[in-house]
Design a protein around this nucleic acid. Structure first.
Lengths: 222, 222
DNA sequence: GGTACTTTCCTTACATGTACGAAAACTACG
DNA sequence: CGTAGTTTTCGTACATGTAAGGAAAGTACC
């Protein structure tokens, strides 16, 4: 496996393709035709190679997607001016990450990878941790707080995107619709009451509301 | 597609297998040998049928997994006594869901499905929404609050489980480790400071801490 | 019985990720 | 030049989910 920026070794068969070429071509396919069209075979022929040759530059398809995410983050997440006040800084940084990810639904398969450890997102992570510490949290609590924010953010995106994906691909009634249709108002009064509005409420973008609640709670606890 | 509890139609070729049999056999395979061993072919031969015959009782493999999750929830999530005080009731109900899911890591692929709309989990959802309303939130805010809690919960599980999965399957250094190794303390002081402890902090189970913060924030906002 | 219709089952075929092992292309050393 | 060692490339093979279309096994009406 070729290391991203390792010193060249002048031994062995000279490479014909590079990791950069692989990732670059993959990015082109994804942006032009969607992640669904990105297959190892397609990528290989596009590069003028064979599928198995790719595996010397990329561990597997999942790593390729992680690299694509990193690549995307580099372009979509640039440090900008953030509020000085700690609470607002935390909210703004998290919102920036969320917004970038939400605009790019194909990363869902990768989102679950680790925390968002893309090099280019780290600046925002720093802002979040720093904001929490500035408010008075210990470093430890601040890191935990960041993780809670990340769970919330990743969860929101993953759930929302896959739900939308499912809805689009099918015309049969949702499982949810079936469930709500058969609700017993005596046993589950609140859900029955919310029944009709549930669908609408679910569609709303309430990320920031929840984020603010979470941040408020984290700060109050510290 | 055979409906779960539709009135029998005495026309057409009589079915040889039922959805229940499919799900039941799938459950056995999963509990005995893990979700990795559950393939449509394996399932078919185990039942004494062919792969494509399964597709008349189950839309696709993903639906099968959703059914399995529902099945699991029915057994793992039984209504129990919860605290009367609203805040504690919300925390307890969410924690119960979280605990059940965390004990059953194979559902990760399904978790992203919808919100947890398993019939058998609805009681807990009801408790959460009801607790929030009891505290004084409008029904609308309560539903939004439940969704925030669900995002946080699903995100925590998905992220933690897949991270663990990745770690186990590989011996090469994590991407995270590589990133932290090359941190510039001038640009990202907080992260560099946390560097060594990050790994340990990540391993901790801080679900309930974050949950309490979120619930506190939701209640304070209402 | 015969024809039409319906539902379930099965055979075949394809696309995909990727494991395995060998071939190719180079350097280093004798 | 030849042999060994190293890295990259490639051909083949397999497991998997599932699409498409037809065969099988019943009922309903004549």
């Amino acid at each position: 496996m070729q290391q991203p920026s390792a010193p060249r070794k002048a031994t062995g068969r000279p490479p014909r393709i590079s990791r950069e070429e692989v990732v670059g071509t993959a990015r082109r396919i994804v942006t032009e035709e969607g992640v669904g069209k990105l297959t190892m075979r397609r990528l290989a022929t596009e590069i003028g190679s064979t599928p198995m040759a790719l595996y010397h530059h990329v561990r597997n398809k999942e790593e390729l997607l992680v690299l694509l995410l990193d690549d995307y983050a580099a372009q979509a997440l640039r440090p900008t001016a953030l509020p000085a006040e700690p609470r607002e800084r935390v909210v703004a940084a998290a919102s920036a990450i969320h917004q970038a990810l939400a605009a790019c639904p194909w990363i869902v398969e990768v989102l679950t990878a680790d925390d968002l450890m893309s090099t280019h997102a780290l600046w925002f992570v720093e802002q979040i941790v720093d904001g929490l510490v500035d408010w008075g949290l210990s470093l430890e609590r601040a890191v935990r707080g960041y993780r809670a924010i990340w769970y919330y953010t990743a969860g929101e995106i993953v759930v929302r995107v896959t739900a939308a994906r499912r809805r689009g691909a099918d015309d049969r009634p949702t499982y949810r619709e079936q469930v709500f249709a058969g609700l017993d108002p005596d046993e589950l009064p609140r859900l029955a009451q919310a029944g009709e509005r549930w669908e609408a409420l679910t569609a709303e973008d309430t990320y920031e509301d929840g984020l603010r609640a979470l941040v408020d709670g984290l700060l109050a606890a510290g």
